[in-house]
Nucleic acid binder design. Structure first.
Length: 642
RNA sequence: GCCGACAUAGCUCAGCUGGUAGAGCAACUGAUUCGUAAUCAGUAGGUCCCCGGUUCAAAUCCGGGUGUCGGCUCCA
C-alpha cells in the first residue's frame, strides 16, 4: 500500500493521491482528462516540474496549460532541443553548448568548423519537423556528475563537459539529463511531455556568438528559432515581425527624408532640412526642460590634448574608442575628439572656487561627441560614431545625492511621458572591480534605490553592472523589433572628483569633495530620434513634425490666396509648405499623407471666397472648411509644445 | 573587431546555369486646372560598390577591400 499525500489545487481544494504518482497521471485521475491533455508542465510548491515527475510529498500543484506563458517558454526550450538533435543528426561531429529561450523564441549555440548555410538551416527545420511529427516523449533522468561527464566525454562534447565541471566546482553532485528519441542533453528542465506539443517551429537565422560571451573564446554558431503551439500563432507572429519592419527608423528615415548615411562617413548621420528641424525642436525643448530645472548650459571644446584624457583616465581605459588626432608639430597623436563631456565639465568646474551655497551645480551641454565604435556594431541611428547627448553633470554634496537623483527621475519621467514612451529602469550595482570602500557604495546605492522607491518606480536589479566609479540607473526603451536600447542614465561618480581635485568650500570654511552625477534623458539625440520614429511610426505629433501643414490648391488659380495663407502660417511660427507643382490635387494630398504631415489644407474657390481653409488630418479625417482664424486656433492648440 | 548575408537608375526591385542591363515610382518637358490617397503623353537617367584575377567574353565565377544588414563583443 503506497502512502498517501495531499495535493492542494489552486481553487483551494485538496485531493489525496498515492505517493510517487506522476504529475500527469494525478491530473488525469483526480482532475480530468481534458486538463491532462492540455497540460504542458506544472508548478509544484513554486517550482516548475515536468508532467512525468513523481509527487512524493504534500504540496500545492498548479497545472500550466498551453495558454500560459510558462508553457510557451517550455515548448520553445523543447524546440531548442529538437533543433540541436536535428543538427547533430544532419551534421555529425557538431558539438552542442547551450540553448536557452529568449523573448520571442530560442537559440542554440553549436561548435563546428564552418557556419551553417541558409540551405542547411532549411534542412534543419525539415529535420526538426520530422522529430516533432514522431511525437517523442521527453524523458528526465537524474545521474551523478561523474556519469554525466563520462557520457559527454564519450560523445566528444567538450563544451558540455566544461559546463558540468563548472557546476561540479559549485558543489553539484547530481544533475539531470533530458532525452527525446536517442538524443540526450544535460539540462535543468522542465520540458513538455513530448516533441509533439510543439505545434509550429521556425528556424530563423544564424550568427556567430562567442563561447560564454567572451570575445577571447572560440566562436560558436548560433541558430535562432521560434516555436508556438499553433501554426496560426507562428504566422501571426511572423506577420507582426513584418509589420514591425515597416516602422524601422532606417526605412522611415528615408521615406520621410530625415537623415542619410554615406559610406564616406560610416556611423555619422547627415541630417536633411526636415531631420534638422526635428533635431532642433528636440534640442530646444530639452534646453527648456533643463533650464526650468536649474541647469546651466555651457559649451566646451571638441578637441583636447592628452593631458586631459590622462587626468580623466580615458587615455588608459578608453583610448581604443577615441578618435585620436595627429598634431603635425609633434608628429604624435596627442589630441583626441571628445567621446564624453565629463572631463571638460570637470575642468571647468575646477577652474574656480565653489561655495556650498552654489550646490547642486548643474552644467548641461549638447555638444557633438565621437566614439570609435566597433565597425560591426554600427546600426542606423541607434548605434553611431558621432552623436550628441543631452548631457549634464550635477555637482552636489553627498547629502544632496538622493534628492538630486529623485529630481532627475522626476524630470525624466515627465519627458518620457511627453512622448508617450514607457521605459524600464535598471539599477546597476557595484561591480567586482571598483574604487571606494563598501560604506561609500552602500551610501551611493542607497541614494539611488531610495529615489526609485520613494517615487514608486519599478526597476530591475542589474547586479554588478554599475560603473567602476559608482552605481547607476539606466532607462531602457524598446525599438520596433523588440530590441531594447538604453536612453536615459544617471550615474554617481566618486572617482572623477578625486582625479580632478574638485572641491567646494563648506559651511565650516574647509574644502570638501563634491559627488558628481552624470546624467542624460534622451541619451543621445540620434538614438532618441530613432526610437521616436519607431514609436510614432513616423507620424509625429504636430509639435515635432518637421512639416506641420501642407497646403494644396484645387487649381492654380487659388495659388495667390494659398501663398498668403502660407506666409501667415510661417509668420506665426508654424512649419508649412505649399506645393506649387503641376500635379493634381489628389496626387498632392496623397503625397502629404505619405509624408505623414499632420494637417493638409485644401484650398479651392470656396475657401478663397470665404478666406477659409479645409483641413484634413493625417489619416484622412476631413475637418471641412473653416475660417482661417479657426484653423490657426486649432493648430496652435495641437502643435503646442508639451 | 569576430561570424554570416547582402550591395544593379534618386527609391523599391527584376536580370535562369557567364554573351557588355530592365520595370514601377520619383525627376525633367509638354498637355491637363481637377474638391480630399497616384491625370495623360513623351524625355532623360546606370564605371551593375571599389580593386585585382579566371575567361574569347564577367552585373553574373574567384580573391581582396569598403559599406550596409542580422547577431556576438561593447555601448548613449
Amino acid at each position: 500500500m503506497a502512502e498517501s499525500i495531499q495535493i492542494t489545487l489552486p481553487d483551494g481544494s485538496t485531493k489525496a493521491a498515492p505517493a510517487g504518482i506522476r504529475v500527469g497521471d494525478f491530473v488525469k485521475e483526480s482532475i480530468g482528462a481534458g486538463l491532462a491533455k492540455a497540460a504542458v508542465l506544472a508548478r509544484f510548491n513554486g517550482n516548475e516540474v515536468d508532467l512525468t515527475r513523481p509527487l512524493t510529498e504534500n504540496g500545492k500543484l498548479e497545472v500550466l496549460t498551453s495558454k500560459t506563458p510558462e508553457a510557451l517558454d517550455t515548448i520553445r526550450h523543447d524546440a531548442a532541443h529538437v533543433v540541436a538533435s536535428a543538427v547533430q543528426k544532419l551534421f555529425p561531429g557538431t558539438q552542442v553548448t547551450i540553448g536557452p529561450t529568449i523573448e520571442g523564441g530560442f537559440y542554440y549555440d553549436f561548435f563546428r568548423d564552418k557556419p551553417f548555410t541558409p540551405e542547411e538551416l532549411q534542412q534543419i527545420e525539415v529535420e526538426a519537423n520530422k522529430e516533432i511529427a514522431r511525437n517523442l516523449p521527453f524523458v528526465r533522468e537524474e545521474v551523478s556528475v561523474g556519469d554525466a561527464i563520462k557520457l559527454f566525454e564519450s560523445k566528444g562534447e567538450k563544451f558540455k563537459v566544461e559546463i558540468i565541471e563548472d557546476i561540479v566546482a559549485k558543489g553539484a553532485k547530481t544533475l539531470t539529463l533530458y532525452r527525446h528519441g536517442d538524443w540526450v542533453d544535460f539540462c535543468l528542465g522542465p520540458h513538455g511531455p513530448s516533441t509533439g506539443k510543439i505545434g509550429a517551429i521556425k528556424v530563423l537565422n544564424t550568427s556567430g556568438a562567442y563561447w560564454r560571451g567572451d570575445h577571447r573564446n572560440p566562436m560558436l554558431q548560433r541558430i535562432y528559432g521560434t516555436a508556438f503551439f499553433d501554426k496560426k500563432d507562428l504566422d501571426a507572429w511572423l506577420k507582426q515581425q513584418e509589420e514591425a519592419k515597416k516602422r524601422d527608423h532606417r526605412k522611415l528615415g528615408r521615406e520621410l527624408d530625415l537623415f542619410e548615411f554615406f559610406p564616406e562617413a560610416p556611423g555619422a548621420a547627415f541630417w536633411s532640412p526636415k531631420g534638422t528641424v526635428l533635431y532642433q525642436v528636440l534640442a530646444d525643448r530639452m534646453r527648456r526642460w533643463t533650464r526650468e530645472n536649474g541647469y546651466q548650459e555651457i559649451k566646451t571644446p571638441l578637441l583636447y590634448n592628452k593631458a586631459l584624457w590622462e587626468k580623466s583616465g580615458h587615455w588608459g581605459k578608453y583610448r581604443d574608442n577615441m578618435f585620436l588626432v595627429l598634431d603635425s608639430e609633434t608628429g604624435e597623436h596627442d589630441f583626441s575628439l571628445k567621446p564624453m563631456n565629463c572631463p571638460s565639465h570637470h575642468l571647468y568646474f575646477a577652474s574656480r572656487k565653489h561655495s556650498y551655497r552654489e550646490l547642486p551645480l548643474r552644467y548641461s551641454t549638447q555638444d557633438v561627441l565621437h566614439r570609435n565604435e566597433a565597425s560591426g556594431s554600427l546600426s542606423g541611428l541607434t548605434r553611431v560614431r558621432q552623436f550628441a547627448q543631452d548631457d549634464a553633470h550635477i555637482y552636489c554634496t553627498e547629502g544632496q545625492l538622493a534628492d538630486e537623483v529623485k529630481r532627475f527621475i522626476q524630470l525624466l519621467d515627465k519627458v518620457y511621458a511627453a512622448f508617450g514612451l514607457t521605459y524600464v529602469a535598471k539599477f546597476g550595482t557595484r561591480p567586482p572591480q571598483r574604487i571606494g570602500d563598501d560604506a561609500l557604495w552602500d551610501r551611493a546605492e542607497g541614494a539611488l534605490e531610495s529615489a526609485l522607491k520613494s517615487m514608486g518606480i519599478e526597476y530591475v536589479q542589474n547586479p554588478g553592472d554599475g560603473a567602476f566609479y559608482g552605481p547607476k540607473l539606466d532607462f531602457h526603451v524598446k525599438d520596433s523589433i523588440g530590441r531594447t536600447w538604453q536612453l536615459g542614465t544617471i550615474q554617481a561618480d566618486y572617482n572623477a572628483p578625486e582625479r580632478f581635485e574638485l572641491a567646494y568650500v563648506g559651511e565650516d570654511n574647509a574644502e570638501h569633495r563634491p559627488v558628481v552625477l552624470h546624467r542624460a534623458i534622451y541619451g543621445s539625440f540620434e538614438r532618441f530620434i530613432a526610437i521616436l520614429l519607431e514609436h510614432y511610426a513616423g507620424a509625429f505629433p504636430a509639435w515635432l513634425s518637421p512639416i506641420q501643414v501642407a497646403l494644396v490648391t484645387v487649381a492654380d488659380r487659388q495659388l495667390p490666396f494659398a501663398r498668403e495663407v502660407l506666409d501667415l502660417l510661417r509668420s506665426r511660427g508654424f512649419r508649412a509648405e505649399l506645393d506649387e507643382r503641376g500635379m493634381t490635387m489628389n496626387a498632392k494630398i496623397r503625397e502629404a499623407q505619405l509624408h505623414k504631415i499632420p494637417f493638409t489644407l485644401v484650398i479651392g474657390d470656396r475657401e478663397v471666397e470665404q478666406r477659409a481653409v479645409a483641413p484634413r488630418r493625417y489619416g484622412g479625417e476631413d475637418l471641412k472648411s473653416m475660417p482661417l482664424d479657426a484653423f490657426l486656433e486649432l493648430l496652435s492648440k495641437e502643435a503646442a509644445t508639451p
